[in-house]
Computed example of a mutant assay.
Amino acid sequence: MTASELDERQVEQFERRLLADGAVRVGEQELWRALANVFPHRTPGPAERRLLLDALRSIETRGSIRLPPEHGKRWDRSMDPAVPTSVDIVRERSMPSDFSWRTFPWHQNLHWVVQCRNLSTQQVEFLRRVHDGFVNGMFSEPAPLKYRSLQLTGDEKMLASLATTSLFGPSRLTLELLACLPDALPLAWEAVGDGGRMLIFENAGPFAVARRVLAELEARQYDLVAYGGGRSLLAALGHLKTIERPVQSIHYVGDLDDAGLDIAFAARKCAKELGLPALLAADELHRQMLLAAEAFGYSLGWPSQERFSNSARERSLDIISPSLRNQVHNLLRAGRRIPEEVLGPEEFRAAWSILPR
């Protein structure tokens, strides 16, 4: 679940649970307990941490909680993304007492504001700045999301949080309406051919080897090789819409473990949302990884430190070819994994059934 997919009703329920005890600060244990209660079908691991962070930031925009300073000590940085270990409750929120937003002469793109039943002072101030932006032509030229956020809120991350609230949606505000460029990380890629068939790697080592091997081949299966950088790929896929080379197809390969398949599954969904070609598994490389593990003397794979729930695993396995799915499922169920780094020059050549020149 991404920030844009947060259900407003669930966020409100999460907020009520955080405020229910009357405490001035909500600690780590209660944060996770409340999240589990409101989002019972969440995905474990990094996705769960992202859900917690996005939900808390969304609530912060309502003015009822305050996250700790970003570079302070009250953050758990043991995994990516970092999440707060506690949040402060704002008991005396400033609410406009005169319902001034109902009589203000809003820009035509904001006529819907007069129908809002309740708005915090922070929300009204934000909407007034958006109104001024429409009037003054602020959105006539696209700008990065964080730049626009600084313009409108003074905080480079606040606009992304506001975008998860009821102020954004059909017939309301959108990031496109505010002329925000996609907040995409750069994606490292190199051309090895003239076409648009792209192969993305989770890790840097196999990316470098595959780039060299493909460049040697007369006939090659891919024309573009990219490095996704693990879960960073989810924030970098949008970069493909800005490069000069047209991308006609996307194949992906990463570690055969719970975390690696979760990245692949999320990347497939992300590519679809971005309007990119369907992201498919590089079956020939997954097959070669299984063979390589056996050749290394580890036919059962290597021990895995991270294990997902059965339901999360079943979902992620959908990215694997049906012909390999049972074998990979048995590997993960046994608490084993195969790192992508088992792919060396010989393995790539074997997978692509071509010898070097």
Rank of each mutant, 00 (worst) to 15 (best):
Q10S: 14
F14H: 07
E15D: 11
V24F: 12
V24A: 14
V24L: 13
H41L: 13
T43M: 11
P46R: 12
D54F: 14
R62N: 10
E70A: 14
R77D: 07
R77Y: 03
V83M: 08
V83F: 06
T85L: 15
R93A: 14
D98I: 01
Q115G: 01
N118C: 10
L119P: 04
S120D: 02
R128L: 15
D132V: 13
G137A: 03
M138H: 14
M138A: 14
P144A: 10
P144C: 08
L150G: 09
L150Q: 13
G154M: 04
E156C: 06
L159D: 07
A160Y: 02
S161V: 02
T165R: 03
L167P: 06
A179I: 05
P182A: 07
V192E: 05
G196V: 06
I200S: 10
N203I: 11
V209A: 12
L214R: 09
L214P: 04
E216D: 14
A219C: 08
Y222H: 13
Y227V: 04
G228C: 05
A236Y: 08
A236L: 05
H239D: 11
R245C: 00
H251V: 00
D262H: 01
A266S: 03
R268A: 01
A271S: 06
L274K: 00
G275V: 00
A278R: 06
L279C: 00
Y298S: 13
L300K: 14
R307W: 03
N310E: 12
R313F: 06
E314N: 13
L317M: 01
D318W: 00
I320A: 05
P322N: 03
L324V: 03
R325H: 05
N326K: 08
Q327V: 03
L332C: 11
A334Q: 11
G335K: 05
R336T: 06
E340H: 02
E341I: 01
L355D: 09
